[in-house]
């Protein structure tokens, strides 16, 4: 029981972590919290669903194509919607991302209806026995995919020119700009990356909770909670925070109540913001002025 709960908690946490990473990527680069992140992922998951059911593409191919399309969608969105207001007050940018939320959410409902669909999983569902615990390969698969994405991001940020520029920009935008980093390009790239990573999250979560126009709302809330636990400005922090949320939620659901899982996330958000506003892992609270 314990091992099973931990593995499924880690799987759930990996899903949250992918969305959390997308949120933190954009926040680090632009100081904007993209409230539409989950809805964009949901929208792309519907597109993937069309590719599977109507174009009858093989599932592994869809898992490659859909994130690329998700990245393209986010890139276009950044270019035509976000960039014109990037110099305005931050509240306006936030309102625009909420506008994007409404647009993506209801366009999906409008096109594909409001009923839940069963989304095929890349991995078999029958549990296998591993050292005495019955573990679903789906959970292991989710964890593996998420780890692969994280490894990819790590390599990108550590070893490529663009990644280094993005790290520099998130440390000190002004200084990076003076060193010749193109800030607008950094914002553009961060949206693109986040769009791709978010789509992977949608594809992984849809087989667990059914594909539905509202499926990402509570995932987004958990990703927020995890990202806040991690301090909202650190990619590894967001991953660990989301993993903790996933495990805590699974244990809470397993031993206490499944009805109030979202309430639990809300409590985490309020408590962390009150007592450890810079996240669990930071030593000192750094204030940007």
């Amino acid at each position: 029981m314990l091992a099973q709960l931990i593995v499924s908690g880690l799987a759930l946490g990996s899903v949250y972590a992918l969305l959390g990473l997308a949120l933190v990527l954009i926040h680090k680069a632009t100081d904007i919290v993209n409230f539409a992140q989950g809805e964009m992922a949901m929208f792309m998951t519907f597109v993937a669903f069309v590719m599977i059911t109507q174009l009858e593409l093989p599932l592994p191919l869809v898992f490659v194509v859909a994130p690329l399309l998700g990245a393209a969608l986010a890139a276009v969105t950044e270019r035509i919607v976000m960039r014109p207001i990037s110099d305005g007050p931050p509240v306006n940018a936030l309102i625009v991302t909420i506008g994007l939320w409404i647009v993506f959410n209801h366009t999906a409902g409008w096109i594909w209806g409001y009923d839940p669909y069963r989304f095929p999983s890349l991995f078999p569902a029958d549990p296998v026995e591993i050292v005495g615990a019955r573990i679903s390969p789906n959970s292991l698969g989710i964890i593996a995919v998420a780890l692969a994405v994280m490894a990819g991001l790590y390599v990108f940020f550590e070893y490529t020119r663009e990644g280094t520029a993005m790290r520099a920009a998130s440390m000190n935008r002004r200084a990076a700009q003076l060193m010749g980093v193109n800030i607008k390009r950094v914002a553009f790239l961060s949206w693109t990356l986040a769009g791709g990573v978010g789509t992977v999250c949608g594809l992984l979560v849809a087989p667990i909770i059914f594909l539905d126009f509202e499926m990402m709302v509570s995932v987004l809330l958990k990703a927020f909670a995890g990202a806040i636990l991690g301090g909202f400005n650190s990619l590894p922090g967001a991953v660990i925070g989301c993993m903790l949320i996933g495990i805590a939620e699974t244990f809470f659901g397993g031993y206490v109540s499944t009805a109030f899982k979202d309430t639990f996330a809300f409590l985490v958000i309020v408590l962390v913001l009150m007592f450890r506003p810079s996240g669990l892992f930071s030593r000192t609270a750094v204030k940007k002025v």
Partner: peptide, 29 residues
């Protein structure tokens, strides 16, 4: 007042996230 309590410590737009959680919480209860 409860939703805004984090304002004691945080800056920026974290409160918006708290309101998102709050709305889902009320709906569920």
């Amino acid at each position: 007042a409860v939703v805004a309590l984090p304002a004691l410590r945080v800056q920026g737009h974290y409160l918006a996230i708290a309101t998102l959680g709050f709305a889902l919480f009320v709906q569920q209860v």
